[in-house]
Design a protein around this nucleic acid. Sequence first.
DNA 1: CGGCTGACTTGCTGAGAACATC
DNA 2: GATGTTCTCAGCAAGTCAGCCG
Length: 956
Amino acid sequence: MAVEAPSKHVYDYDDEDDDGPVVFKRSNTSSSKQNQLNSEVKKASSQRSDGQSGRQASSVRAPNGQNSVAQTNKSIPLSKSPPIRSPILSPKSSNSSAKASPVRSPVVSSKASTSLNDQSKQVLKQNKFTAVKEEKGPIKRTDETNSDDDDDDDSKPLSARLKGISSQGNKGVSTSTPAQSQRFVPKIEVKGSAEDPDDDAPLSARFSMKSNTGTSSSKPYGSHEKKPLASKIQQNGSIMKDKQQKSSMLSDKRPLDKGNSSDQSYAKKPKISDTPTMMKTKQVTVKAEKDDEDDHIPISQRIKKSVSSVSKTSSVKQKATKVVSSSFKKINKKSKKDMKKSKYSKSTKLSPSSGDGQKKWSTLVHNGVIFPPPYKPHGIKMLYDGRPVDLTPEQEEVATMFAVMQETDYMSKPQFKKNFWEDWSKLLGRNHVIKSLDKCDFTPIYEWHLQEKEKKKQMSSEEKKALKEEKLKQEEKYMWAIVDGVKEKVGNFRVEPPGLFRGRGEHPKMGKLKRRIRPCDITINIGKDALIPECPIPGERWKDIKHDNTVTWLAFWNDPINPKEFKYVFLAASSSLKGQSDKEKYEKARLLKDYIKNIRAAYTKDFTAKDVSKRQIAVATYLIDKLALRAGNEKDDDEADTVGCCTLKVGNVECIPPNKLKVRLEYAPRKDGISLFDFLGKDSIQYVNTVEVELPVYKAIGQFQTGKSKSDDLFDELDTSKLNAHLKELMPGLTAKVFRTYNASITLDDMLNKETKDGDVAEKVVIYQRANKEGVLKELKTDLDRAKKGKPPLKDADGKQKRNLTPEAIEKKIAQTNVKIEKMERDMQTKEDLKTVALGTSKINYLDPRITVAWCKRHEVPIEKVKPYIQQVTSGKVCLGNGCGSGFQILIIRNKNKVGAIKFLLRPTSPREKKKKKEGEKGTTKTPLFVEMMIHFSIYFFFVGFRGKNSCYMSI
DNA sequence: CGGCTGACTTGCTGAGAACATC
DNA sequence: GATGTTCTCAGCAAGTCAGCCG
């Protein structure tokens, strides 16, 4: 074994520690509860809610007189919610809470309405209809193990939940891989209701289901897609909804040209047929659901898997792996229809969001994008050869872009200036007085820019507020989309403003003009039945309109710097689609836990393989696993020279006897000052790491380097496609980047456990703080004594004379200091506790948040210590160690007076907290029940992402 | 089969909000 | 209230990787 996995950790499914502090065990007796729940949910979700949903959007008359989709986006009504009963204490209510459909209200038929809300209704109707069909699907879940069990179990003492997990036997490899059989085998029978069978499924599952069937009953997706669609675009860019004009929308293939014609349409390649897709997704869905149930359980104690399934003999696993491998090859050759028959098909679909042609949504309504305001000329004249120069607004705009960068590092980069000059001089024209950048003096414009900045800074808070509100008002309608009837936040709805390209490192295109994007550059993706957003710029129109529900983007345009590439408008990270995608990523990483042992054994074996290619794959996989290197795709000449594992150059790796490797992705200056090999990591970041490696790896690297120059590829037989193809043979869905997620998460898990066991950190903090406190107080007391004697205070640590205060003032200060220090102690403690998981924002993409929740639960750590995390759970991201406010907010999403969902939010400025602060109270109110609730629901609703209507807030 | 395309995810950075201190 | 510091968020550059196509 080349690399040893950490021995025991929460992330380890196979944790044998049955005596762990807390185990959330599922009972096998929950099927009846499930049914009970289902019926409740059915009621809740099949009834029309109180009509509030209608407030979400309304139709407005477009200025041109045509109807346009416009969302009023009224804020969620803040009606008081009745206090919710703890689902932990009340399994029944918990069930209804947990299982209720988020915001999908039953439908009121309203065919002709043009309002966004009505569109949603129609959409919902479709969904519902589809769901009826869905229940006849072939997938049956048999019983037990459902999230409801969690609710059930949570009412029991934790210790009582220990048993039974191990009783979930391994189903063996005959129907799936060992890991899958352990966790993914469907066990819950879906007994859908004809009214809304969807509601029977867990939310996460429902999401997937819907995404696959959607309109199939009324308008089969496949057939619809294949129908030619006429262009809906009208001359002024405003679009009339016209189902008969869909012929041109057949195409889905993206245009690569930058033509402005909106008449063009592009056909997308045929999609997977409906039936198999549906089947596949159901399988995946069930799998995911099973995992959902586990999410709130400390992972280490989750599934007491029979040791044999993973580590009994590696041959068993390898056998399974081989089957997977051959199956995959077959899949590639067979039609997609056959795929469903593959016993591994569900494994292949671990990541439905990975561009595999699966349906991502059934209905999509949004208002397009907002454009930056047109350029306002300032009229400040720059100097050329010491003389003021006249510029047209266009020329001035680009000159200003350059001028405002006067004090940045880019100004010292010849490439930046060269590229800027190339583009700007084109704009100036041949006959312009400006012939050379060297003689240009942009100072007057720069100074004007500084003045403007200053003016802005000097604005009163009222003015700032008004400006902000004005901006919000303008942007509000673009901020939201309705996906499958659920209101979701749009991520980057603002079109990128023009500017100079700021490539990182030594990007060859830095300084080039990123021209202004116009509507005719933008392709909109929207639901077939949704109103096409009105083009916000009069007289212009969108480049194209698509209705592609296999992708999640709402709009895209070609990157003006690299027209081969695209800029997308996606939903925000808090959206269900993104959350789902994140969840799948973590699931894949978790799955790797089951395979890692054999993967490591396999590559260790191949270190000495005769086949060079095989040997390179083995060593590369080792480096990715051990050094967390990125895969390293090939780069074009017009991109920055950065490397990853597969593109490592000989010069990037230095062999240090006897068995160390120094991996250097950095600038290595030559004597003449020019870099010898500027092969940096992502974002042109330098990376240097010296590690001890297995001797065979060391030797193999040496062999790969032999006879090559420093700039030659170390792995000349390898690229990311080959590597990933190989990885997929080892584990379904495995790619190089999964190792990063896996290793980051497992490290977090491991460290959390380790630190918690040691308990040293907290002690050290206390000692430090006490010393600090005593020091400060001693100083103050000295000052107090001196003040009482009428003497001035001593000088401070920096030698400065302190202010002369009255004894009363010093006493007050001492009291204040005590309060502050106490607070600081708490904060420091929190920080110190979280230090072991000190994560930059970059890390949020790698750490499975469930680990943290499980850890909190196990170690009885109040969840508020990771408050930001709780906040982030709702958005599908983890964020630990950052600032903490005080106070929480629970967003209760209701459906006809029944709690449909609960969402936790930070609310540092809640009236209660403010009041408490004013009154000098410390800390936040967290009853054990509340903490329990937060943990419970956070896990349950993890990534499900309830959004939208019929909601209210309850501060606690 | 390999290159290319398209659709994402990942991660750095700057701006500004929030908070702390004087 | 002015100033300094910390935190958060959005923007966008730069990665990964699946699937298509020649």
